[in-house]
Design a protein around this nucleic acid. Sequence first.
DNA 1: CACCAGGAATGTA
DNA 2: TACATTCATGGT
Length: 209
Amino acid sequence: MRELLLEVFNKLLDRYGKQHWWPAQTKDEVVIGAILTQNTAWKNVEKAIDNLKKARLCSLNDINKAELDLIKEAIKPAGFFNQKGLYLKNVATFFHKHGGFDQLSKFNASKLRELLLSIKGVGRETADSILLYAFEKPMFVVDAYTKKFLKRHEILTSDDYELVQRFFMENLPKDVGLFNEYHALIVKNAKEYCRTKPICRGCPLEDLL
DNA sequence: CACCAGGAATGTA
DNA sequence: TACATTCATGGT
């Protein structure tokens, strides 16, 4: 199974190249983007982040100080702005209370995940995205695409988040760079082949079906 | 026009 | 534990 997962990774990387995730300029933006992209197309998140930058609200510190309604107005393009406005406030408060990235980095990945999950608005995928792409902890990120991808290629059919996550983490070297690219490549591939196309023509994993 | 997007919280049984 | 509902904008 280890070899299969590495083979799949190599084929994806060979086809698509590095994805350079997370698409953000700062760690704060990774956290903000992780909230904004919940069940939302990244294109819309970009608009929201653009608005936040123009309003000088694109850091956790700024979000802490800012009026909630200003945040909501800026993030409207990303949808669910009433919830996400509150969620951003919750996350910003959390980072402030815990002394920011420097202090939080001292926790091990498991403990930090637990802390992140205690924030209202941060679920498993959001927590893991923050752990991997902002804290650079070797935590595999699972999303809807990942499950579709595994089913489509008949590798694993489970919908259980933790199970799918363990499947990757127990069968791959715990490497931040590897987890980073792997998740991004799965998303890239799934967007292309796991939506409307019933047959996998031209997919780099065609021969695995 | 319907359907979905890099989910999570909440409620019900 | 398992499943349904709600949240909202913008692209296809």
